[in-house]
């Protein structure tokens, strides 16, 4: 049954990949082992299969310095979230300050327009707002700079 017959060789070679993958039933594996002991040509074929698998294993193996570079970059990025969270807090602070400033401006504008006819209020508040705009921008820039320093 295990002799090197063409039929035996064909059977063994057809399922070499399965055998090396551990996919044969115990009886089939035993039959093939018996054949391989007697057949040099099939042993050579099996050696080629094993070589293919070892080539696949080494192919694209990364270089040590390449891995080090990735590790360093990952660890550096992991150190970032805290800083980013800080940036987020600062952005929120700036947003809140801006909202408060806008609210204050609205109150001031409403007060400055009190008692005037409706159309005059609109024009007066608009003029006033446009006049004050550069100053508010300076204030906002200053606040933003302060929060960045903090």
């Amino acid at each position: 049954m295990n002799e090197s017959t063409p039929l035996g060789c064909a059977r063994v070679r057809a399922r070499l990949a399965i055998a090396l993958d551990g996919g044969l039933a115990p009886l089939e594996a035993a039959l093939d082992r018996g054949h391989l002991e007697a057949c040099a040509e099939c042993r050579r074929e099996r050696a080629e299969h094993e070589r293919l698998l070892s080539l696949i294993r080494v192919f694209s193996a990364p270089r040590a310095e390449e891995l080090e570079r990735v590790s360093a970059a990952v660890l550096a990025r992991l150190a970032e979230p805290r800083a980013r969270r800080g940036e987020l807090r600062r952005s929120i602070s700036v947003g809140l300050v801006a909202a408060a400033a806008a609210g204050l401006l609205a109150v001031l504008l409403a007060r400055s327009g009190a008692g005037l006819p409706a159309r005059s209020v609109d024009l007066a508040t608009l003029d006033h707002f446009l006049e004050q705009l550069p100053r508010w921008a300076d204030v906002m820039r200053g606040l933003s700079a302060l929060t960045r320093i903090a």
């Binding site: 192919f59 694209s60 193996a61 990364p62 390449e66 891995l67 990735v70 590790s71 990952v74 660890l75 992991l78 150190a79």
Partner: peptide, 22 residues
């Protein structure tokens, strides 16, 4: 413990990189 993450990096970096290279 961020240093512990380095252990994971050292263990799995090479095989995962090899996969991505393929």
């Amino acid at each position: 413990e961020r240093e512990a993450f380095h252990v994971l990096l050292q263990r799995h970096n090479a095989p995962v990189f090899a996969t991505l290279r393929r």
